[in-house]
Design a binder for these strands. Structure first.
Lengths: 147, 147
DNA sequence: CTACATGCAAAGAATTTGCAAATCA
DNA sequence: TGATTTGCAAATTCTTTGCATGTAG
């Protein structure tokens, strides 16, 4: 997507694209859950969470809403090795990375212009074009490592 | 990129465990294919490739061999967004990253001590322990971008 | 009213697993 | 021989889709 990591771009005053489509009970519920729990969660977890809470939203709809928001750039997505995608409503809308807790999904947004520049340089040095990159750090957060 | 014998490296943590288990026709075939085609391929592609070539190996076995080698640290695995894991026999056995062509799977090994240090620092600054990271660069290689 | 949203169940895909038969050492 | 390996098919998981019905605007 982002072909030229341009860290020097001044934060554009265009935060969240206005939510598309109609406003429905389901979207509201999903959004509320995402806003409250600002940790990475899987679609299935989110679904369980909503159900537990009494909200009636089908799993398919959760997936649909999630991918719609992904398209709109309103949620960040992670693809860990274990085959379950993780979603999160991020504070920052600009390109950034994450330091994620494996246990609870809690995450810290990381911005690192130096890394952006580095990846761009590596790619161009090897003649690769349209470079994108993936940089995520996984660990155990202070709370979860406390015995 | 340069992964050559580094005499100055302090005793490297024994990465290449001797191939385990028995040697079989199937393992030989899979290994040969992996060694020849040193690009990232999915299990399914590898399976098709072997079949095409006349080698008789079942898909399940390809998966089993691949995950065994992964455990042994003999292949690197990538988890792109599109849900298919990609495997590759790497020249380097030490920790490194990749610059991968989206089209053909061709990859360049990248070593970047600075990035390693950076991720470790970020994690510890936030009190995260047992930090690991994912750093991959995707792009279009010179050959594939040629019209 | 009518295009978009949702629910449900079925479909898909990638990967794993149970188990009997084949095979390497 | 005897423990591994393999093949095959069935099972699992996460995710997507088809279609009839519901509903926001």
């Amino acid at each position: 997507m982002n072909a030229g990591p341009d860290a020097s771009t001044p934060s554009p005053p265009q935060p969240t694209r206005p939510a598309r489509g109609r406003s429905t009970r389901q979207k509201t519920a999903v959004n509320r859950a995402l806003d409250e729990r600002q940790d990475f969660v899987s679609a299935q977890e989110l679904f369980a969470l909503l159900k537990e809470r009494g909200e009636q939203v089908s799993l398919a709809t959760v997936y649909r809403i999630l991918q719609q928001q992904q398209r709109e750039g309103r949620v960040d997505v992670l693809n860990p090795d274990d085959g379950e995608a993780l979603y999160r409503r991020c504070a920052v809308q600009t390109h950034h990375h994450h330091l994620v807790c494996r246990q609870c999904g809690r995450a810290v947004d990381i911005e690192a212009p130096a890394v952006e520049r580095w990846t761009a340089r590596i790619a161009s040095e090897h003649g690769f074009t349209e470079a994108e990159h993936t940089v995520e750090i996984y660990g155990t957060c202070p709370d979860c490592s406390r015995p």
